[in-house]
Design a protein around this nucleic acid. Structure first.
Lengths: 229, 229
DNA sequence: AAACAAATTGACCAGTTGGTCAACTTGTTT
DNA sequence: AAACAAGTTGACCAACTGGTCAATTTGTTT
């Protein structure tokens, strides 16, 4: 219980602590950078501001990440890994209703838990995605193509309405990311300071239901959207 | 034909030319500013860049608009007028299908014709909307509330599926603005340099159909989405 | 504890930023 | 054409920008 998770006690050198400082500072800086980039984008962010949020001297950021662009690149890369996982609820064998509902729920959970990541991504797209050309034109495109074929299969089998799967993805992204990127707008309309857990569940099921109807799928499988404190 | 639109010929002073230079330069600067703000937001934009796009010396911008913030404010105000008009297809008396389809078409037309306006707005929301508090909390909120009551009426009358109208608006905004704000992403997935007229019509009817199904409305009224050159 | 690597940071720099201003040109009015 | 207002703009400035660096401290290895 009381021991401080210091493993390999007798071995002499603590393998855990190798580069510990570096790892801690890097994540600390990355978090601060994500917050600042989320609000103002690459061009608008300043190293001084990131340093202040991170609680470190500015020179320290340059020591770990070189230039502002490299720090930005690092933040973006972390986000892309997160992003590419989301489509993995959509498989050939799965039930369309469950697969699509699962996808929407995963996307809404991202908007809820990693809104800053979503905002950084949005800022990058708004400025023409100069750092994401490869991601957009290769990785994302292929992923969408693959998943679109699966959905096209479902349509051919008469399991959902006929539609262009690519546009379905555009709409899903728009609907779900709006809850992160444009949260101010949503909070203003709903007249709340922050979205409560209940409000997030409400929003999620509104989107899930709307999407399933939009896809011409009859019944939604019931599934609470997680995150119980 | 050949005359240079100089009306009130005999009257001596040309009423048309009063402040003509000012008006021309202001719109010229506003257009340049919109483009630059769209890509990088307020913080990322520089007056020098705007001046270059406008093809005017920097000091000239300050002569007409004072500070960068005031220029930004002016750009935003112009956009808000555009924005607030869109909901006007939704009336008590109108057919839900036509009203909602019309709303979506209007929004898609905005994304198509004024993508820069949409991007400026998106950037402002991403940075926390410091210049839009009044708009969001008063004007937009009331407008949404009013229109939501109408939609709630349609639901009560059994003319469409039961849903929260406010979330419907969030989804509609997300779906339609994605085609302007994240156009790079869409172009990358569709593998096109620019969206053709046909592609825009395709996208529009995909969204319209999806929305009507999502709202539980049976048939869509057929209406070509305009813009024939 | 000696030797070395890793990390810290104040001070500094050249380039850029938003903004000013005074001298000047152009347009308008009478 | 005289008088005045409106518009133009190069030169300038203080504040800030991303980035560097050398001196120093801290951590690690033997």
């Amino acid at each position: 219980m009381g021991d401080l998770m210091n493993n390999s006690a007798a071995s002499g050198l603590t393998d855990t602590s190798r580069g510990r400082i570096r790892r801690e500072n890097e994540t600390r800086i990355l978090e601060a950078a994500e917050r600042v980039f989320a609000d103002t984008g690459l061009a608008g962010a300043t190293m001084a501001q990131i340093a202040q949020v991170a609680g470190l001297p500015k020179a320290n950021l340059h020591y770990y990440f070189g230039t502002k662009e490299q720090l930005y690149q690092a933040v973006l890369t972390g986000i892309l890994e997160l992003w590419l996982d989301a489509t993995d609820t959509i498989h050939q064998e799965s039930d369309p209703a469950e697969a699509l509902a699962g996808y929407v729920r995963a996307k809404m959970l991202h908007s809820r838990q990693r809104p800053l990541a979503s905002k950084v991504f949005a800022n990058e797209l708004l400025s023409g995605a100069p750092f994401l050309t490869h991601y957009l034109e290769i990785e994302l495109r292929q992923r969408v193509e693959a998943k679109s074929r699966i959905i096209a299969g479902w349509i051919a089998d008469g399991r959902m309405t006929s539609l262009d799967p690519r546009h379905l993805f555009f709409m899903l992204w728009g609907m779900t990311q709006t809850y992160a990127d444009f949260a101010v707008q949503i909070r203003a309309v709903l007249e709340v300071e922050t979205l409560s857990d209940a409000a997030w569940d409400e929003a999620t099921s509104e989107v899930v239901d709307f999407v399933l109807r939009g896809c011409g799928i009859r019944t939604a499988p019931n599934q609470p959207s997680g995150l119980v404190s």
